[in-house]
Simulated scan of single mutants.
Amino acid sequence: MNKLRITICISFLSFFSLLTQNAFSQHLVGAKKSFITKKLMGKVQEQDVFQYTLQNKTGMQVQLLTYGAAITNIVTPDKYSKMSSVVLGFDSLSQYAGSENQLLGSTVGRVANRISDKKFTLDGKEYTLSSDIHGGVNGFDKRIWKAKEILKKNEPAVEMTYFSPDGEEGFPGNLQITVTFTLKNNNELVIDYKASTDKATPLVLTNHTYFNLSGGKDPKALSTQLTVLADQFLEFGDGSMPTGNILNVKETPFDFTTSKTIGKDIEKVQQHTNGYDVTFVLRNQTGKLALAAKAYEPISGREMEVYTTEPGVVFYSGNWLSEKLKGRGGQSYTKNGAFCLETQHYPNAINTPQFPNTVLRPGQNFSSQTIYKFLVRK
């Protein structure tokens, strides 16, 4: 009888072990996997344009476009575990390539932001540009980039490259640039910029993604709580052109040293820029990666942390968005419907000697990193 009981127990344990193993295997099969997909979206300038979709193990997704090396979509969970987009975007390639596109998600260069009078002098020679803002009439945001898929440590990435020839938009030097977008399994989107040149040239790179962390629940971003790790900002005049003066944020509408909503003081800065369009001088000036800003949206519980090696961040409150702009799903966008946190060197630095250097020279390798990390407060 005892031998029979022992045999039955052993059989039961073996059966239970098999069930457990099967259940575990099914759990692994059902688990989300990191992947990259590629889709032809059409042609611009008679060149093929592709969309890449990156997904990590948690299910977070990032979509990229080779037109403008643009971030077209970021899908993250809210406090109820519902997945939805947290950035503005379009449905079609023709919209991204059209005149209505306000740099949505684009990589901006050769010099992001402003250069006064669209002129600068470098090594004794004066250069005249096609425009005073965002790299020229046809800056990097309007170029077709080459792309290569990378999957390391089960984390998907896309490396985009562009060759900017000497004289493009008025800038000197043949510039080779690489921007790599990596989606980490801890819900970090890492952007690595690298560049080299054969002639001295100014270089200021950034990404121009518009964030609305409510995931579509609030058409405006004015209730988003923002913190910026900066005690100073660049004084500016009409058109947000820096004057060269660096001012303290204390007792001004630009004080985000402690968390406050974007909308709290926005009416106090309307006179020059129709809202916030300001460059903050970050506390971190070491060139090493550090936290620059945090944004929290109470409706969704989403929080975004921004880390960068750059000395500044431009905070733009979507001042010129309007209902005329039809976005994803035919949705009408609205003024202050999103915000940008553009990590970069200071605007007009090439014409402002007291600002940190933005000139890249032959033999030097430009390197910069920015991370957008997405979290949830329950």
Rank of each mutant, 00 (worst) to 15 (best):
S130Q: 11
K79D: 05
G89V: 03
G136T: 00
L93Q: 00
T161E: 08
R143V: 05
W145P: 01
T76C: 11
W145N: 03
V75T: 14
E126S: 15
D78G: 05
D123Q: 15
F90V: 05
I74W: 05
E126K: 12
G135C: 05
M83W: 15
K152E: 15
L151Q: 09
G109Y: 00
G89Q: 06
D141I: 07
S131E: 12
K82V: 13
R114L: 06
G98T: 10
S81G: 09
F90G: 01
R143Y: 07
K148W: 08
I115R: 00
E100N: 14
R143Q: 15
K153C: 08
S94T: 13
T128N: 11
L104T: 03
S130P: 10
K142I: 10
N113T: 01
Q102E: 12
N73T: 12
R114V: 03
R114Y: 07
F120H: 05
M83D: 09
T121L: 10
G105Y: 01
E100G: 08
E149A: 14
G109L: 06
I144L: 09
K118Q: 14
Q95T: 11
K118T: 07
K153L: 11
S92K: 15
G139W: 03
K142A: 12
P77L: 10
K146D: 13
A112T: 09
K82Q: 13
F120V: 06
T161G: 00
T121N: 10
A97T: 03
S99G: 04
S81K: 15
M160I: 05
E126I: 07
T76D: 00
F140A: 04
P77M: 11
K118C: 11
I74S: 04
E155S: 04
K125D: 12
F140N: 02
M83S: 12
K153N: 15
D123N: 15
H134A: 04
R143S: 14
H134V: 07
N113R: 06
D117S: 13
K146F: 09
Y80V: 11
Y162V: 13
R114D: 04
E149K: 13
N113S: 10
E149G: 05
S130C: 08
T121Q: 12
K125M: 11
A157K: 02
Q102Y: 13
A147D: 03
S130G: 14
A112R: 00
S131C: 08
A112E: 01
K152C: 07
L88C: 01
D78L: 02
M160L: 14
L103S: 10
Q102P: 05
A147W: 02
K118G: 08
K125Y: 11
A157P: 04
D117Q: 14
I144K: 00
K142G: 08
R143G: 10
A112G: 08
I133A: 13
Y127W: 06
G124Y: 06
N73I: 06
I115G: 02
N154D: 15
M160S: 02
N154G: 09
G139P: 03
K148H: 11
R114E: 04
G89D: 03
